[in-house]
């Protein structure tokens, strides 16, 4: 049964990727400018090269052939060149991706760390002042425009108080060789004498962007955990457990939490898409060298191959993460199994 379910998911995934690549493929035609340039990322193509490239990309054949060749190039890692740097878009993105993932991971971690306990507290203290306070804070966090929030935090913590730096991942005077692309592991792996200072510096750089990025998901977590917890607490088995003489805490821990947190795991996957969206804005404001800033820069540069590649990679990632959490959720939660 499980195999059948997984097989169906896999089939769906394949279908979704086909749809996505068709979409990306059609972008080359939809974007302004020369189709051949959009496909290859080359500019000022000479007539001789044009003939050769047209043959190579199959642009003289029908769309299906072109699409198949396009997918073939994607799979071989032979993506288009970026207009601005004339480098393979995939290589460039793989360089900037870790920064985004790192930031998103910290933010997600932060939002779980803060959001779930607050949500539980709010649910347990339903309609008391603590619940009202937490819910109001959640609503405020839910409504605040992230770019404005980021500017406020910079104004207060960087410019007025001078506690935290405003941009980048690490003070520029620290020279840390890139191994994994993730800053903290890289610092620990490096052999510089100032490793310890660098580590602290990296954390100071990370603090504001992570908090900004975590704000929205945290509020979602609070609201979601609270609702889910309230649902569970109204269930009969909770009442039964209480009736059997278990203390509030015991009931909460052994019966309430587990059942309430199951839907929350699903939420983690859904939040990933939001995180990536918000990361784009956060990265622009904090000059964080991740894929979001890279994509926004590509727009300013009218760098079509880069936009195409970015959309493809980011969407694939989001879909993959979503699918994975859904599968995990299904496997762990018997109620969600409808095989």
């Amino acid at each position: 049964m499980i195999l059948h379910y997984l097989f169906r998911r896999l089939f769906l995934l394949a279908f979704v990727f086909v749809a996505l690549t068709v979409f990306a493929f059609s972008l080359s035609y939809l974007f302004p400018g020369d189709v051949l340039s959009n496909f290859t990322g080359l500019r000022n193509i000479s007539p001789a090269d044009e003939v050769m490239l047209t043959r190579q990309l199959g642009l003289d054949q029908n769309y299906l052939q072109q699409y198949l060749l396009f997918v073939q190039r994607l799979l071989q890692g032979d993506w288009a060149l970026s207009f601005s740097s004339q480098q393979n878009v995939l290589t460039e993105m793989l360089l900037v991706m870790p920064a985004t993932l790192e930031l998103a991971a910290y933010a997600l971690f932060l939002s779980l760390l803060v959001g779930i306990p607050l949500g539980i507290v709010a649910a347990v203290r339903k309609d008391k002042w603590l619940d009202k306070l937490i819910s109001s804070l959640a609503l405020i966090g839910f409504s605040v425009p992230i770019f404005w929030w980021a500017l406020l935090l910079i104004m207060v913590f960087s410019l007025s108080l001078g506690w935290l730096p405003t941009s980048g991942r690490l003070g520029v005077l620290y020279e840390i060789p890139t191994v994994t692309g993730f800053m903290l592991p890289d610092i620990l792996l490096s052999e510089q004498s100032y490793r310890q200072q660098a580590f602290i510096d990296a954390i100071r750089h990370m603090l504001l962007p992570s908090v900004v990025l975590a704000t929205y998901p945290t509020t979602v977590m609070i609201r979601f955990t609270r609702d889910s917890m309230l649902d569970v607490l109204e269930q009969n088995y909770i009442k039964t457990a209480r009736a059997k003489g278990l203390t509030r805490l015991q009931v909460l821990y052994t019966h309430g939490l587990r059942n309430a947190l199951l839907p929350v795991t699903r939420q983690v996957g859904l939040q990933f898409s939001t995180l990536i969206t918000l990361a784009m804005i956060t990265e622009v404001i904090f000059s964080w060298p991740g894929i979001g800033r890279w994509l926004i820069d590509s727009i300013y540069q009218r760098n079509f191959p880069a936009i195409q590649g970015g959309v493809l990679l980011v969407s694939s990632l989001v879909i993959l993460v979503n699918m994975l959490t859904e599968i995990m959720h299904t496997l762990f939660n018997p109620l969600a199994r409808k095989f």
Binding site: Q197, D201, I203
Partner: peptide, 23 residues
Amino acid sequence: RLTFVCLTALLTHACQPDRNNPG
């Protein structure tokens, strides 16, 4: 140890690491 140092450094903001002077 690193975590400890970081936390203390973060809490006591006065302890701004001499970041302009690495090595």
